[in-house]
Simulated assay, not measured.
Amino acid sequence: MSLGRRTEDADTGAGVDSGALTRIRRWTATVAVLTTLAVGCTTGGGPDEGSRSGGRTPAPESSEPGGDGDRDGPVLAVKIDNVRQARPQTGLDAADVVYVEQVEGGLSRLMAVYATRLPSVVGPVRSARETDLELLRQFDRPTLAYSGAQSKLQPLIDAAPLAAMAPGKAPSGAYFRGADRVAPYNLYLRPAALKPAPKPGGLASTGFEFGAAPEGGTVTRERKVRFPAARFTFTWSADQKKWLVAMDGTAARTAEGKRLAASTVVVQYVAVRDSRFHDRWGNVSPFSETVGEGSAIVLRDGRAYDTRWERSSAEDGTGFTTAEGKRMTFAPGQVWVVLVKA
């Protein structure tokens, strides 16, 4: 009798028998087909849980994030993988804010914040980092969806002023494994299972201001940003009036084939230092300091603005001012904040 080869989750190190994994994938694919058929009978469309070439995940609502709101509301933050095996991601285009963080080995990971709308499915979901906790303190008890964390970091997550929703704590059915990829790149989330529809004003605490472009700026067609082992390119599209995103030299797309595009891109220069934590191979996890002040480049409307950022405490949002000392405003729509080592 063959003993299935054991594979390991890169984040947790948990062993999984490959024979069992094959049976799980087959079972997941069967459930995915039944789920898609059931959803199709009631709504006319549903998430594709089993195959990239099958049914498509429904497109998010057409309303743009960054709209007006008169009160703070809860937000959902989801940690999303960003290595090649994890692309294309699902539900990333519906986020109001996408934070790009450096992780072990100089790679990048994303934290998508949903404040005005929830997509049907988001993923692939991966593990949390210490940087996330400081970023999320600006929100009023946000919900953090993540696949797990380094054992010594987990107590900090449990003590943080947020609702931590890893698979073991989430409601039944919130997470599922897709059959089109191998673990750990196939964990997906149904956001509606964790939170009701977002309330207005969820972005108010970020300190971001949306409105007409300030004077000045430099006409810019393209901006490249490099991490030690990852790179991003933001290219202005006059037709879409957005910055098209490319990762590691390849156009970034959703699982449905739509180009990822941001209305505003913030290249925020921060101190990046070693944290007390490391991954299962001993690589130290970097910590990006988002409290303090420094320089930033803000891209909007085909122009680049030299700005200064300031965040007094973790409970405060981040303010941006132009070289002329005026408040930097963002274009309504999705914001990407790329945290780069100063």
Rank of each mutant, 00 (worst) to 15 (best):
83 V>Y: 01
260 L>H: 11
301 D>V: 05
182 V>F: 09
194 L>W: 01
339 L>T: 00
286 P>L: 09
340 V>Y: 01
313 S>P: 06
60 P>N: 05
289 E>M: 13
63 S>I: 08
342 A>E: 12
94 A>T: 10
328 M>D: 02
249 G>A: 12
173 G>N: 04
311 R>P: 11
108 S>R: 11
300 R>H: 07
328 M>G: 09
325 G>Y: 05
197 A>S: 13
117 R>D: 15
87 R>T: 10
274 D>Q: 14
232 F>A: 14
18 S>T: 07
155 P>M: 03
69 G>D: 07
22 T>L: 13
155 P>A: 10
82 N>Y: 01
80 I>M: 14
154 Q>M: 14
42 T>N: 03
198 P>A: 01
273 R>D: 15
300 R>V: 08
314 A>N: 00
17 D>E: 05
183 A>P: 05
146 Y>E: 02
305 Y>C: 04
14 A>Y: 00
106 G>D: 05
132 D>G: 06
203 L>V: 05
13 G>P: 06
85 Q>A: 15
91 G>V: 08
258 K>A: 15
243 W>A: 11
99 Y>N: 10
208 F>Y: 15
150 Q>H: 13
267 V>K: 03
44 G>H: 06
328 M>H: 02
319 G>Y: 01
24 I>G: 05
98 V>Y: 07
282 G>V: 02
207 G>A: 05
271 A>N: 15
188 Y>I: 01
310 E>M: 07
284 V>F: 02
140 D>Q: 13
282 G>P: 04
10 A>G: 00
277 F>M: 06
245 V>A: 06
310 E>N: 12
329 T>W: 05
34 L>Y: 01
248 D>Y: 02
123 G>E: 07
229 A>Y: 08
186 N>W: 10
314 A>F: 04
28 T>M: 12
313 S>W: 06
177 R>M: 13
60 P>S: 02
173 G>S: 06
211 G>Y: 00
191 P>W: 01
18 S>Q: 11
227 F>T: 06
5 R>H: 06
100 V>E: 14
149 A>R: 09
147 S>F: 06
129 R>A: 01
334 Q>L: 14
17 D>W: 03
50 G>F: 14
327 R>N: 05
29 A>H: 12
277 F>K: 11
339 L>S: 07
253 R>K: 15
30 T>F: 12
42 T>V: 09
278 H>V: 02
73 G>E: 10
245 V>K: 13
124 P>S: 15
291 V>P: 12
242 K>C: 09
114 Y>L: 01
70 D>N: 14
171 P>K: 00
228 P>T: 12
255 A>W: 04
235 T>H: 08
247 M>L: 12
147 S>E: 13
321 T>M: 03
1 M>Y: 04
58 P>E: 07
110 L>W: 15
103 V>D: 07
266 V>D: 04
77 A>K: 03
220 T>V: 12
267 V>H: 08
266 V>L: 15
137 R>Q: 14
148 G>H: 11
273 R>K: 13
34 L>N: 01
85 Q>F: 03
101 E>M: 10
54 G>V: 11
280 R>F: 08
319 G>E: 13
342 A>I: 00
155 P>L: 05
168 G>Q: 14
47 P>H: 06
102 Q>R: 15
226 R>Q: 10
48 D>G: 15
109 R>Q: 09
210 F>S: 03
108 S>N: 08
237 S>Q: 11
271 A>G: 10
205 S>L: 08
119 P>Q: 12
298 V>S: 02
24 I>S: 11
244 L>N: 04
87 R>F: 02
98 V>M: 11
329 T>P: 02
183 A>Q: 10
58 P>S: 03
